[in-house]
Design a binder for these strands. Structure first.
Length: 684
DNA sequence: ATTAGGG
DNA sequence: CCCTAAT
């Protein structure tokens, strides 16, 4: 007997009739997945968080819950208690003052149905997001190699990412700063910092606006650009000051999206940029990992006991921030050493989970560069019932129902209903755990730019949005062919009508692929990212050891071959190669250009690695190749008429500097060659 | 791993 | 941004 059914995932017990599903879901199945995911990240994160929560208290475990399965989360979860199968999540108020909103959600689930009842309003999207992340991350963290207690998942830690530090001067000033005098003159006495600041603000007005809920804690001046932050040391205790006067003006771009990095700056005098980012890609990975492990551990036997492990994890989770913080920093000491950040394979993987990137972008602070990603094929559209309620500049919405992607279930006729339920649950759990990502639909259109703020996207309390929807779609990246990395023929490409899904094997969830993806929304729960995007080099290796083809055996399916019962999210990409996603486009902000120009003026055009190190050390998404390319385009841009230029306009003065620096260094290069020419001639 | 260029 | 060849 083969049951083929789509399940509506109701948050409020609200089921969306299949008939009412938008056709979009299906239609988009064929779309090439190249999505970068998330747009309106907050929304996605919120949704993801919900889903994950749900997962944690999946029916499988819910049996014993009997009404006690209530999950309440406040801000960041600090500790978790388990009562039999029931988990109670508690969190502590964020002490940063940035998030003052109170609790935002509570969930109640019924055991017999895959329904989650989510009520309560989200006082702030950020909070919601934070919630989702924390709950998710918490566990994942445990799984991570960091070990319990080492992780952080609150915004505080996140702050580290958005940090810039001054660079120390290297080499002799004369060589290092050919443009030093010139630049200074160019500033007309205006402090570099100020200059940059104006530049940033001019371009990205809202970036640092006071309205930003995520205000920085105590650091004074932070410059935030569209997708990166510029940090300028204010105090003089920077080493660079002494040895290299102008160094204090160095601009460094930090990628807020990178989760992995901890902080770049060790100097107290440095300003902290962006408040925080709860979970980064790392978080995503962790989440995924968590999900995966959980899934495999629990699903199969549906035993209790399993949770006990979590306890330990959870506790560890509540490590004190200090510790986590320290850890984080230490980890990122040698960014370049372990740089494989842009490895594509890794990127794709990350997508599977919600990326943290963007999670914290609130409308107020938003302003990120536009990213253009292609949408991933969505296999299903979740039921949408979103209502907005004006409240300050916050958007409140409640998702009445969510439909999960289509699942195929195959089960013997002789199986019991209970067995069927479990099977279905597992399938759902599996999908939710790692194979989904969240998409946002606005008026029928998929919102692909995860970096846009809700406001920019048109989702604001001012608008009576009646057409905001979320979708759960198979996460291409995430969905790795678990079992057969080589890509067995049987794994159908996403365009296949309705490929069968199979339970992800641990391997699949694994990260082999990892992430980098910019921001895969939920399934991968990224960065963000988005993560970062992209950025975390460390793949999740949890699956490595235990994962074997046999893992499938773990699937708790009644006496039948796993294969038979296997429910697999379809729409997975069969080939890893296909998983390769083009990195999301992240236009350089003026601040970044400024930093680049300054670095090039100082270092020249042939030392991109140094440029990267000097000015973009913390911007994981900017590789030296990117910088080189950007310089190339800048030179080109500077040469064409302003009318021909596109994108965010770059201040003419910057372009002028580009040209002069380019000319200068070209000349230098020529001289170098001239010098060598004679030598070679002599040699010959 | 970097650099340099073409696409 | 991607892809490659050459270092």
């Amino acid at each position: 007997m083969v049951l083929q059914k789509r399940f509506d995932y109701g948050f409020n017990g609200y089921h969306v009739p299949r008939a009412s599903r938008s056709a979009r879901g299906r239609g988009s199945v064929k779309k090439k997945v190249e999505d970068n995911s998330m747009c309106a990240f907050e929304l996605l994160a919120t949704v993801a968080g919900k889903l994950l929560q749900e997962k944690e208290t999946s029916p499988i475990h819910a049996k014993a819950l009997a009404g006690n399965d209530r999950t309440t989360i406040v801000k960041h979860i600090v500790k978790e208690e388990h009562q039999d199968e029931v988990k109670i999540l508690k969190s502590e108020p964020f002490d940063q003052g940035s998030c003052n909103e109170g609790v935002f959600a509570s969930g109640l689930r019924s055991q017999d149905h895959n329904q989650i009842h989510v009520s309560k309003e989200y006082s702030h999207v950020q909070n919601v997001v934070g919630l989702g992340h924390s709950s998710i991350i918490r566990k994942s963290d445990c799984l991570e190699k960091f070990g319990c207690g080492e992780d952080f998942l609150n915004g505080k830690r996140r702050n580290e990412f958005g940090r810039l530090r001054s660079t120390e001067g290297e080499g002799s000033p004369a060589n290092e700063e050919p443009f030093g005098g010139k630049v200074e003159n160019g500033t007309d006495g205006v402090p570099e910092a100020q200059k940059i600041s104006s530049g940033v603000n001019g371009t990205v007005p809202d970036a640092c606006s006071s309205g930003d809920p995520m205000k920085l804690d105590r650091k004074p001046c932070v410059l935030v650009s569209s997708d990166s932050s510029v940090e300028i040391p204010l105090h003089s205790n920077c080493i660079s000051h002494a040895s290299f006067p102008r160094c204090q003006d160095d601009i460094k771009i930090v990628n807020k999206d990178d989760d992995e990095n901890s902080s770049g700056c060790t100097q107290p005098s440095t300003i902290n940029v962006k408040a925080f980012r709860p979970a980064g890609r790392i978080g995503d990975r962790r989440i995924r990992k968590l999900l995966a492990s959980k899934y495999w551990k629990v699903a199969p036997k549906l035993k209790d006991g399993e949770l006990s492990n979590h306890d330990g994890d959870m506790n560890s989770f509540s490590c004190n921030r200090k510790t986590c913080y320290t850890r984080q920093r230490s980890q990122r000491n040698s960014p370049f050493k372990k740089r494989k950040l842009f490895d594509r394979s890794s990127v794709s993987t990350s997508d599977g989970v919600i990326s943290s990137e963007g999670v914290f972008n609130t409308p107020e602070k938003g302003i990120n560069g536009v990213t253009t990603g292609s949408a991933s094929g969505a296999s299903s559209v979740a039921g949408q019932q979103v209502s907005f309620q004006p409240r300050d500049s916050h958007v409140r919405l409640s998702i009445k129902s969510f439909r999960i992607p289509e699942l195929f279930i195959e089960i013997p006729e002789t199986e019991t209903i209970g067995s069927l339920k479990r099977t279905v649950m597992e399938a759902v759990t599996a999908v939710l755990g790692g194979g989904l990502r969240v998409g946002v639909l606005l008026q029928g259109k998929k919102v692909r730019d995860d970096n846009k703020t809700l406001l920019q996207t048109g989702i604001s309390h001012d608008n009576k949005l009646d057409s905001l929807g979320f979708t759960l779609e198979p996460n291409p990246t995430n969905a790795p062919p678990l079992i057969c990395p080589e890509d067995p023929p049987f794994l159908l490409p996403c365009d296949a009508p309705q490929p069968l899904n199979r339970y992800p094997t641990p391997a699949a969830l694994d990260p082999g692929a990892s992430e980098a993806s910019p921001d895969p929304p939920m399934a991968s729960l990224a960065n963000c990212v988005e993560s970062d995007h992209d950025s975390v080099p460390s793949p999740i290796d949890m699956s490595t050891d235990k994962t074997t083809p046999d893992s499938r055996a773990l699937v708790a399916i009644p006496a039948m071959s796993v294969e038979a019962l296997a429910v697999v999210p379809y729409n997975r990409k069969s080939r890893r190669s296909e998983l390769v996603q083009r990195r999301i486009r992240r236009p350089f902000s003026v601040a970044e250009v400024e930093a680049l120009v300054q670095a090039v003026e100082k270092l020249g055009t042939g030392r991109w690695r140094d440029v990267k190190l000097r000015a973009f050390d913390n911007a994981k998404h900017r590789t030296y190749v990117d910088l080189k390319d950007k310089w190339k385009t800048l030179v080109h841009t500077a040469r064409i008429s302003p009318q021909q230029r596109r994108g965010e306009p770059v201040p003419q003065d910057l372009l002028d500097r580009v040209l002069s620096a380019h000319a200068y260094w070209s000349q230098q290069q020529a001289k170098q060659q001239v010098k060598q020419q004679p030598e070679t001639c002599l040699l010959v």
